[in-house]
Amino acid sequence: MRKSPLQLALQRVLRNRMAIGGASLLIAITLSCVLLPPLLGLDPNHTQPSLRNEAPSARFIFGTDTLGRDVFARVLVGGRTSLLVGIAATAVSILVGVTYGAVAGFYGGKVDEAMMRLVDFLYGLPYMFLVILIMLMFSETARGDALPVFLALGLVQWLTMARIVRGQVLTLRHQEFVLAAELIGASDARILLRHVLPNVLGIVVVYGTLMVPSVIILESFLSFLGLGVALSWGQLVADGIAVVNPIRSYWWILVWPSLFLGATLLSLNFVGDGLRDALDPKART
């Protein structure tokens, strides 16, 4: 029996040990962030003034921070925010970017040129600016809420996606099967949804996977600068950096969140690379 291209791609991903390892680690981290805090009854904000800066022990396996809060609980709950922001902002940017890029590429010509001018303008802006300014707008209304963060990040990340999709659609536009669909009188919307978009899905998935880590990094930048709104890995790392000093280092406050952050980003990149190699034979070397 002949295998479909999708099956072949799946086979290639499964043979990529790095990608599988990354995916398993990712699932493990996600599950523990989501399930462990309620199961073990962990509270990230419970302060114990008598147990400040405790080194890792059987009771607090990651130690406690300067206010006597359990670092293990904080890392897990902070992970929820980081992962949620990464996924949600990527979803927003895929939605906006694919629509925008597909329309620009499909109609081409002057429409495309004008639409891409706008993208160029936004691309030229230092994106941290936009994000910081948008974050300021929510700074007082949304304490502890992750929604503004991923809106802000999604709104700057869609540009790359729009460019990639537009380039793909531009080449697909003039292929025979699209012309054929046009000839039998299919509407623009139908052609876009049924014939063009399925063909860009692969590249969207690949770049989407690679976008999640960059969103998580961006969010951690914001938290580091004190502009984040919710407890996240970036904020925990910033807390950890704040207590690094030459006299006494409470290394566990810095190391654990950094480790989780690094491991998550690394495995996302492994998975993204694996998918790209599998779906795009030309990039495989």
Partner: peptide, 9 residues
């Protein structure tokens, strides 16, 4: 995979 501030720290 490592944000610059983690690397820097």
């Amino acid at each position: 995979s490592l944000p610059s501030f983690v690397l820097g720290a």
